[in-house]
Nucleic acid binder design. Structure first.
Lengths: 237, 237
DNA sequence: TTTATGTATTGATGTAAATCAATTTTTATA
DNA sequence: TATAAAAATTGATTTACATCAATACATAAA
């Protein structure tokens, strides 16, 4: 059911792709004709906080661009979830499964009210086949994600708790909120899943950082007070 | 310095790419002209066991196909190495860095005497730009690796020791040696790095499996005696 | 407002796996 | 062959983290 809030957000709907400021930069290399077709085939969906956008294991029929809000992309494990990435506008996502087994290998869930623009996989594949620039852009994007996932593997297996939590704080500050002063929309469990730690351990480390005055923290309001120290803990973690 | 053994292996040198049976299936979609250019630009290198083929952090100038031998592809972490993949003929490898920062983000080292066929990155990029089938094949390959690395993340963070060691044994048997009866060329440390465990812990689990008669193990000769049980341990982890 | 339900916090306890240390076995070298 | 060096094994100890349990707090529903 739509909330009043999401109803009003319908003003967020994009008129067209040509002058859309929510468009992923991936699409900048499309030809005029391809852009036209893109515009005719896309559609937008509005999600409430907590709703699932892609479900791990389900069939991958569309690629998406997040046009507003915040979402988490995570692997559902047996014992816990591992958040690989927080998605924000205008992140583009094409499931790696669309060229393999047409399945989603992770779940994407809205953290805040969110809108996403959907594009049919067949259409996306066609763009790749017909436009080498587009293909190259996509490959660059994929490869960057691969490299990131290497880093994730090392962090999750080699860093210990303080290093991982410091890493999560720096990631949120540098990449997601782009500020040292954050009204985080993530729950403590989300932060834990970002670190691959239990909720309790994460909370304890956050408290340590607060006591050491590296951060200030009240509820979901977090401010980085000593970026230097956090960075050092992350590096030596 | 070349050993006598590696000298004799020069007979392994490929005459040309056209009828090469060490060629990665990726290249099957090349046009005749592209295949001709491939043949003229490639070169082969012979490695002794233990030698480094690609070094993490160094600049990525070539993509490779492993034409003989066995190699390990691993991330060098602060405290330990994580083996992502064992490479065997005719595995193809293009560093994800070639479309990002022109660096290697992992190290590849020969486990046994090994030959690898090198192809210039510029040339490889050209193939991708000029041949959409080739680009698609490459994307498929990349995506498959991405999906595998998701699995790796879950295994390393959620499975405990017996599950991980069982996984490594099954991987070696199913994918690398393609037999239940293996004369493993990997060291105990290699197996540990494949599991993300310490050498000592890995050895202990192997001993447990031997005592339970799931495997027989003498030195580097390993035979799977109870595949079912190993699979179950892997699944329930 | 009251009640309920989920989220956050803190402390006590348990445990999986690493580390350390010593010994044995294997492989390489003089 | 003898000797050195590396790899494998085993046991004892330590520790980083999870789990469990109880309580506090916040948000939403009645």
């Amino acid at each position: 059911m739509k909330t009043e809030d999401s109803f009003f957000r319908k003003s967020d709907y994009c008129k067209n792709c040509f002058d859309c400021d929510h468009r992923s930069e991936l699409f900048n290399v499309l030809t005029e004709e391809q852009m036209y077709r893109l515009n005719n085939n896309r559609y937008e969906v509005i999600y409430n906080a907590g709703e699932t956008i892609h479900k791990q294991g389900s069939s991958a029929t569309h690629v998406i661009t997040l046009t507003s809000g915040l979402a988490k992309l995570y692997l559902e494990g047996k014992h816990r979830d591992i958040i690989l990435e927080i998605l924000k506008p205008t992140d583009f996502f094409a499931a790696p499964g669309i060229f393999v087994d047409n399945r989603h290998h992770y779940t994407i869930k809205a953290i805040t009210p969110t809108t996403a623009c959907f594009l049919d996989v067949e259409h996306f594949r066609e763009m790749i086949n017909k436009n080498p620039y587009f293909a190259q852009k996509y490959i660059e994007m994929m490869n960057e994600k691969t490299i990131n996932s290497f880093g994730k593997i090392l962090e999750l297996t080699q860093k210990q708790m303080p290093g991982r939590v410091a890493g999560a704080i720096l990631y949120l500050s540098n990449t997601i909120y782009e500020s040292k002063n954050m009204d985080m929309e993530l729950s403590r469990q989300d932060i834990a899943d970002l670190c691959g730690l239990s909720k309790e351990s994460t909370i304890r480390i956050l408290k340590d950082f607060k006591d050491a005055e590296y951060i200030s923290l009240e509820g979901k309001h977090l401010t980085i007070k000593d970026h230097e120290s956090l960075q050092q803990i992350y590096n030596n973690g």
